[in-house]
Write a protein that binds this DNA or RNA. Sequence first.
DNA 1: TATGAATGAGTCTTCATTCAT
DNA 2: CATGAATGAAGACTCATTCAT
Lengths: 198, 198, 198, 198
Amino acid sequence: MRRVDPVKHEEKRREILDAAGRCFARKGFQGATISGICSEAKISPGHLYHYFTSKEEIVEAMAAAGLASGMELFRRIIEGPDVLAAFVAEIERVKTRHIAGQALLMDMLAESGRNPTMGKILQEHSRAVIALLAGFLRTGQSRGQIDPGLDPDLAACSLLSVFDGAKTLAIRDQNIDKLKSYDVLKILIIRFLTPPTP
Amino acid sequence: MRRVDPVKHEEKRREILDAAGRCFARKGFQGATISGICSEAKISPGHLYHYFTSKEEIVEAMAAAGLASGMELFRRIIEGPDVLAAFVAEIERVKTRHIAGQALLMDMLAESGRNPTMGKILQEHSRAVIALLAGFLRTGQSRGQIDPGLDPDLAACSLLSVFDGAKTLAIRDQNIDKLKSYDVLKILIIRFLTPPTP
Amino acid sequence: MRRVDPVKHEEKRREILDAAGRCFARKGFQGATISGICSEAKISPGHLYHYFTSKEEIVEAMAAAGLASGMELFRRIIEGPDVLAAFVAEIERVKTRHIAGQALLMDMLAESGRNPTMGKILQEHSRAVIALLAGFLRTGQSRGQIDPGLDPDLAACSLLSVFDGAKTLAIRDQNIDKLKSYDVLKILIIRFLTPPTP
Amino acid sequence: MRRVDPVKHEEKRREILDAAGRCFARKGFQGATISGICSEAKISPGHLYHYFTSKEEIVEAMAAAGLASGMELFRRIIEGPDVLAAFVAEIERVKTRHIAGQALLMDMLAESGRNPTMGKILQEHSRAVIALLAGFLRTGQSRGQIDPGLDPDLAACSLLSVFDGAKTLAIRDQNIDKLKSYDVLKILIIRFLTPPTP
DNA sequence: TATGAATGAGTCTTCATTCAT
DNA sequence: CATGAATGAAGACTCATTCAT
């Protein structure tokens, strides 16, 4: 008789969050509507509120989930024996991604400037990414692939900036052949991190 | 009967755009309201429509004006005998600016990902900035301050990315002492652009 | 296949009605929600509809039950050798009751002004209470405690008015020291009912 | 050019409040809808919010206005050389009034039990009415029409109770010939207030 | 040029009720 | 008997835009 099934509940939440993610990518956080999300998720508006108490909660949950899955992807790409090559690979990935995804990050950044909750989510994620990067940098330093004179934490911040900048570049320069610009960005990373020749 | 004084008309438009800019920085493009802009500009909603035909037009005009004035500022900072030092100075400027301003750029980037008109505005501006930067790079190369091996146009793209990244960093890392991270960012620029020692 | 145990069924109905009564007292008929009642009664919304076909039915059943149990209480208080003293005791009881209970009666009165079904329920109850009061008045008259010149039925109406008025007074004058006002109300009753001195 | 006209603004507010009053009388505070009020007032929902910031504000303003105008009526009826006769006249008035008006008061009483703002409005009004009544009682006492042994303030509370009770009686006993019950209520008042014969 | 009254479509959210299990 | 997922029709409120003056 009993069938509480928290697994299914969580699954449905995830489905809704996915649908919301698609809507947000298309219209932005403010532009996307509950009824749009419901259509996308194929549920009724009333039902959505069994899983989330407000649009804000959806936005925040979606942002957190999106950032987390983004970081997971990031981690997988970055992992590898050659730290420097890994960073270059990440730039390569940005080059080939769809713009909507980047726009969503821009929305989060914009929203963070006004909404403290979103600010906190983004900040936490940023700290985690920076820590991840710093770890890799330290590994690279120990292997002699990275300039040991750089502070790993601060260099990680700079690297994150560069990755962000690669994303804004994709938006700014939509049509133009970005292939080459990205190559130069890779050079930038290499010059930044490579240990100085004695 | 009435003759429109085009100068005054233009002046009023500018005033409204300024007010709109402040509202957009506070609330975002979608979050800001016409009536909020009217309050800020101290005019009535009806009157606003003598100067602009829609909110969209205001958003676009404001974006264009904002980017233009941003570029003007940028140009002034960048101008100087030492090209490399100029770029470093721009990073310094980002460090001390208020976040709301950065958020506005993020809004434009986000919006550009969806709204083609905004995309075009941003793209045009980006091209102009890149051209400006490329010019400076060329000058620097001729003076021996910049690595002559770099393609000036592509390096300009990379530089713009880094400047954007500096802005996202300000948002991502609101409380943390960003002074030092920005110093490393300056090092990054220097290493990227400095001519190789023979 | 299942045989409904009518006793248990009735018991559950009563439980739900009790829960509903608490909700209604807190939020009013319109303000209380089915899901609130379900939480209070610790059953699921679906299950509630095995016992009642609609919210309206709950409201009406609850009103009827509430009025009936109120009258039972009333009867017990009123019963006694000294009829006059009994009425005074009822005033005393109102004085010490919680306001939420009074508000529920007000809700019924308000609802009766619009909803004929509720009107009928209240009217029937009123008639019963009036009959009860009239009986007591007659007894009192026969004992010489009540002015024999008063028509028992009409005086009962007046008495009921006074009891209602005592309840509205409790709401109107929430904080103020109502002890004394209630004493005067008792005097009012005594003066109204006491046989004239020859 | 300027035409701010706060008079018209106030007039419109009054119109809306009147419309709201009719809706509330028909459906109750919670049952009445903004769109219903708009239809009744012949304005659009958007426009209503130029005059009131929320439904709650309308409810409260309407309650305050309704009580105030009710008290004005009350004052006019009560004024007269014979204080006792005036109170009896008030009972007479209740007898002939439409039930919807009474239901509205019941709604206010019910709402006061839960909503503190409404509670305050009602309480203030009650205090004013009681003060008014107490004044009349004092006058009556000085003229020898009212028992000088009664505390005017407390007796005023009792009188207000009786007036309220007269209203609940009208609701409880809708169809029945209430003429006679009201006569007995008048007797009750007379017996309560008349000075004792020596 | 300037106002602010007025509109109505659209937004988020709630809630009584039904249904599959 | 019992659950809670699911629906969809409102409800309050917002806001870009228009219009009479």
